Simulated assay, not measured.
Amino acid sequence: MKIINEERTKELNALKAINEKQGQELTKASNLLTTQEAKLNEASTSLDELKNEIKNNRRTEQRLRRQRDTWAASGVLAFIVGAAGAIR
Rank of each mutant, 00 (worst) to 15 (best):
E42T: 06
F79K: 04
W71M: 13
K16R: 08
D69H: 07
E49M: 13
N13L: 12
A73L: 14
R58D: 03
A84V: 11
T34P: 00
A84P: 00
K2G: 09
D48V: 09
K55R: 14
E42S: 09
A17M: 01
K2W: 07
A14G: 06
K21D: 04
D48Y: 08
K55E: 12
Q62N: 13
N13W: 03
N13P: 01
E37H: 02
R59N: 13
Q24P: 00
V76M: 07
E42V: 06
T70S: 14
G85A: 15
I54W: 04
G75F: 02
V81S: 05
L12N: 10
A78R: 01
A72N: 15
E61Q: 14
E25W: 04
A38Y: 00
K2I: 10
S44R: 05
R63W: 09
V76N: 04
K55F: 07
W71C: 12
G75I: 02
E42I: 05
G82V: 01
L33K: 13
R65N: 12
S30L: 03
T60R: 06
L32D: 07
L40A: 09
A14R: 13
E11C: 03
R58E: 06
A78Y: 01
L33W: 10
T70L: 13
N5W: 12
L33H: 11
S44G: 05
N52K: 04
D69S: 10
N13K: 09
N57Q: 15
R88I: 11
T60K: 05
K51Y: 12
E49R: 09
N41Q: 05
K21C: 02
G75K: 02
S74E: 03
I18N: 10
L32Y: 07
T70D: 13
N5F: 12
